[in-house]
Design a protein around this nucleic acid. Structure first.
Lengths: 202, 202
DNA sequence: CGCTACCAAGCAAGCGCTTGGTTTGTAAAG
DNA sequence: CTTTACAAACCAAGCGCTTGCTTGGTAGCG
């Protein structure tokens, strides 16, 4: 009993309701085994119920995947918003954005974020569209900061390409970053930031 | 008829033998639908045979995936070797490596490369080990060049971290690079190169 | 003759999901 | 404090279908 009973325990961006625990368990299984290799019996066993009982919470298995993705996008969009709130300097905004995204990918929501990247095509086309709309909001926060940085003369490269290179660097970090290693998230943040607004040659 | 009939047509790094065509078709299906969602009947239909006949070429479906990965790693390791052959300047070597890797990821072997990244965990543990051994050879070519760059005083950052950031930028490009767009592979190569050996602040 | 490549048919297992009924938590009514 | 009511959560069983793979036999070719 390490948590105060009056506070919610947030794991993978989900609360501790039956639904939240189910989604958190599903997120971990989806990441470890992939969506297709994870059976509804696996998920049920993980939360201690029968497989059929899952369908009182979600109409289909795919809806569980969709719910995981929606929750984690919403949670991390809020994290992004909070990170830049009150910061006027675009370079400081960018640092905050990189740090927040790394926190998403290799920190507390890492399991669900991995699912977001790797299990995208397991969604129905309709759910893909809905997810895209949510991601567009997230991406707009990035683009606003990068465009501001350009207007301030501190970014020479194209903002879209810059964002894509950052996405590559941050998302790939889930495959190698060791939370128990000597490199901290703050250090990695500065290294990546330096690749973006360091002094580059022509 | 753009290919001379006496020359092999290389697609996804595979030749035009029955086995090669089977692997190439499998690579495309695996990328489009994922390994698990692709049935042996899908693959068989694609090459125009019965599903059972696949098992005269490969003992299991997973062996097809493994063969795809082995072929594409071998092919692209050779491409990397050829790219740096005869180049003495480590910066030019690095440019050649980045260009070759982009060619793998968004060029002629893009389907099989995507499979390599996304379907990794569908391999048996034994096959994962074998694949890792092959990738280690590929990565060593990168590390040799980056360490040479460091010794030449043209790379301040840690070589391992640098390689990982490059891997992120190149591998993510498969998700956005448009072969028919205005940005060329050579231009992207220079942009990425600049993130690595541009003049960075402390 | 023998070898490679293939077909036609189908098996056993595992899959997502359904069904009908039971337990559990909650809260107003008596 | 007990009773009644009711919905949410869950169980036990299993259906219908798809899956990877097997089997026994055949066509074409040197």
């Amino acid at each position: 009993m390490v948590q105060a009973s009056t506070r919610q325990q947030i794991v993978n961006g989900m609360d501790d309701s039956p639904r939240g625990k189910l989604l958190s368990a599903a997120a971990r299984l989806f990441r470890d085994q992939g969506f297709d290799r994870t059976t509804v019996r696996d998920i049920a066993r993980e939360v201690g119920i029968q497989s059929g009982s899952l369908f009182h919470h979600f109409p289909t298995k795919e809806d569980i995947l969709f719910a995981v993705m929606v929750e984690v996008i919403r949670f991390n969009t809020e994290r992004l918003r909070a990170a830049i709130a009150g910061k006027a300097d675009p370079a400081e905004q960018l640092r905050a954005l990189i740090r927040a995204e790394l926190q998403s990918i290799i920190g507390d929501t890492r399991e669900a974020m991995s699912v977001l990247v790797y299990e995208w095509r397991c969604l129905t086309p309709g759910h893909q569209q809905e997810t895209l709309a949510l991601r567009a909001i997230y991406e707009q926060l990035w683009m606003d900061a990068l465009e501001a940085l350009r207007r301030a003369g501190r970014l020479q490269a194209d903002a879209f390409i810059t964002r894509r290179l950052i996405t590559g660097m941050t998302s790939w970090s889930s495959n190698w970053f060791d939370a128990h290693g000597s490199l901290t998230i703050d250090q990695l943040t500065d290294i990546i930031l330096d690749r973006v607004i360091g002094e580059h040659g022509a």
